[in-house]
Design a protein around this nucleic acid. Structure first.
Lengths: 385, 385
DNA sequence: CTGAAAGCGCTAACAA
DNA sequence: TTGTTAGCGCTTTCAG
């Protein structure tokens, strides 16, 4: 039998409750337990669907559930986390949440988190490895159950350490050197090849690359794939400029190319933020796109097709990258399976628009067929990229 | 005197430690306490800079600090939160993190959080009041110390309730009806007036508005200010179409205006995401901007000036909005002052570019002087809006 | 100047 | 079928 009077817990020390005025006292497990004349443990089990396992009387379970609903009981996630070492939270760290690409990743990860009943901690590393290290540390000590990381990508020791400590972690977009970590990213090399093939087929011979942050995986794969394809197709070297995934870098790189290699007939720009800078420079110098310089830009964005000329781009499945990364993280969280360090490569598409043409010409005469997509509606709702 | 042997805490039940292989055991307060032969309480006080208040021997404090550093001790924020009811976390809820406007808000709030030693919980309400309510509830029960909310803006009861429960909360961008909550937002009415003045001065008479989500504060303020200025300046009614801050709404509204009011010579578009849709529709219908339709768009974005024609926009100080909202939140968190429900209005600017001209003309002949900014470099680094 | 002990709200091991 | 107890890691009375 159960005792029929439960002592009020001693409130001698902690002078809480109505003093601080914080609304009416929080409903806790103990509130329920006392009102139902049950032990907190029983209530806990009933609430957690452990009724069957512990063979709690169905009636009891029902009473518990009922009162819980009536009082609007919500378990305290912090207490639970402290006890169980699982916080039902995940972390997302990106190099720049203001960048539409990562904002879109965040959007899909946030969506997945919510659907799985997790909260999302957001960290912005501002493309600094030091900040990234700090942020990851903070999140780890906050007991996030897992992480999606779009790393800065220049150093990876802190990330590997974190992953080896047993915390599920999935990389997105930029991978890191020793491919021991699960990662979801675009097929950057494919993008590089598509760009090279298109320009080669249009008859370009002297071309340049405006790159992003050297040393990062997307940058290297895009550049190298383009260069090696170009070497094979055209047998010419490729000029390279640029130093960051930024507007400023785009401006400087464009000035640089115009000065050092004024005879280039096409540029492959590895980042659409930089591309903005590059295009402005071309305008200032009175160079016509595509007549003087053809342009292929990595990564699409909603305005690409509205620009004059519209941009030919390599389109990444941004939303899918985020979604898949989150899915894989939640798989890990559910199965506690050992993280297969598989790299998932999502296909890119070449979207052909007006910014490319044969050298010296203002438009493509006959549509090439390179498995490309004739540019049009690729973007729609809610300003997302 | 202190006892010189401290008993190992009983590890009978919790089979933790090395079994699960989770790296080496976490160093806790007790680890330190035992190795220093002190009570956990003393260590806690030393670590929390309470040494002075409790007059702990300076030597002791030093020893504690030293060992803590040596062992890389990091307090467990969850345990602390459970005990102190402050989590050192804040929440940010936005209607759409994929929208560059809110991504930029998120960027500045994330930055502020980090600088203040807080972590940031991110919630995306997807412009749904229900989701917003859920998200806010989740965050509240996670004990966030405070919130920055960019509400959907159609209903506010849940937000007011939350705020009245004593949790510091600052609104950003969209306010909510009973102006009892602190809020940081742009001066939307000023933007509406500037737009009206410009179009009036250029000689337009029949104009229309493509609005965003009706009933939300920015939408109503922009629209009403425009309409009332227009009435005063021109004495004509203003056509209105549109139903959301989305691309699709922009498309539909534009089709709608063209069909119902084909004689309009200028459109004021209250959302730059919708504007993209509107511009595409104009193109499809072969209407020239600005000759057939002049265009003013609310909210700038990096590509506005690269478009052909470049967009005349009302520019909001997005980053400042986020920064100020966060600052005000942290003021509240520090001072525990009662939240002054002041509404902070940040000025907007009219940036004059090529998408406006006198009716039937293709460009502005003589620059007007309306306190406007002649369009140019307003955007730069890292693809942020 | 320091320690013992209580307890934040919950869950898990063990006991009955 | 349920209760008792211990304890997650920390802070905070209260008692020296």
């Amino acid at each position: 039998m159960k005792s029929s009077i439960r002592p009020e817990p001693s409130r001698k020390r902690q002078g809480a409750s109505s003093a601080s005025g914080r609304a009416r006292a929080r409903v806790t497990l103990e509130t329920l337990a006392r009102r139902l004349d049950l032990a907190p443990a029983t209530v806990s089990r009933a609430l957690n669907g452990q009724g069957a396992r512990y063979r709690i009387a169905p009636g009891t379970v029902r009473r518990v559930l009922e009162l819980a609903r009536k009082l609007g009981y919500r378990p305290n996630p912090l207490a639970r986390a402290l006890r169980t070492h699982t916080s039902h939270s995940i972390g997302l760290v990106v190099p720049d949440i203001g960048n539409p690409f990562f904002a879109e990743i965040a959007s899909s990860v946030a969506d997945a988190a919510r659907k799985n009943g997790y909260v999302l901690l957001l960290g912005d590393s501002q493309d600094s490895t030091d900040l990234e290290r700090d942020t990851l540390g903070t999140m780890a000590e906050r007991n996030v159950d897992g992480l999606v990381v779009c790393p800065v990508g220049l150093e990876s020791k802190h990330i590997c350490t974190l992953a080896r400590s047993g915390r599920p972690l999935v990389l997105a977009d930029r991978g890191v050197a020793p491919n021991q970590l699960p990662c979801v990213t675009a097929d950057h090399a494919q993008g590089g090849r598509l760009a090279a093939q298109l320009l080669a087929r249009l008859g370009h011979r002297r071309v340049g690359i405006i790159q992003g942050l050297p040393g990062t995986l997307p940058n290297e794969e895009r550049r190298q794939a383009f260069e090696s394809a170009w070497k094979q197709l055209v047998g010419q070297p490729v000029a390279v400029a640029g130093h960051a995934f930024s507007y400023e870098s785009g401006v400087e790189a464009a000035e640089d190319l115009l000065r050092r290699f004024p005879d280039l007939t096409a540029w492959f720009v590895l980042c659409n933020v930089s591309a903005r800078g590059a295009v402005e420079v071309l305008r200032r110098h009175g160079r016509n796109i595509p007549r003087d310089v053809s342009l292929i830009v990595f990564d699409d964005q909603p305005f690409s097709e509205l620009l004059e000329p519209s941009w030919t781009v390599i389109q990444q499945p941004v939303r899918d990258i985020g979604r898949r990364a989150a899915e894989r993280l939640f798989d890990l969280l559910r199965n506690r399976a050992k993280p297969t360090p598989t790299w998932e490569r999502l296909s890119v598409r070449l979207v052909l628009r007006e910014s490319v043409a044969p050298p010296g010409q203002s438009r493509i005469i006959e549509p090439t067929s390179l498995g490309t997509v004739r540019g049009s509606k690729a973007h729609a709702s809610r300003g997302t990229v």
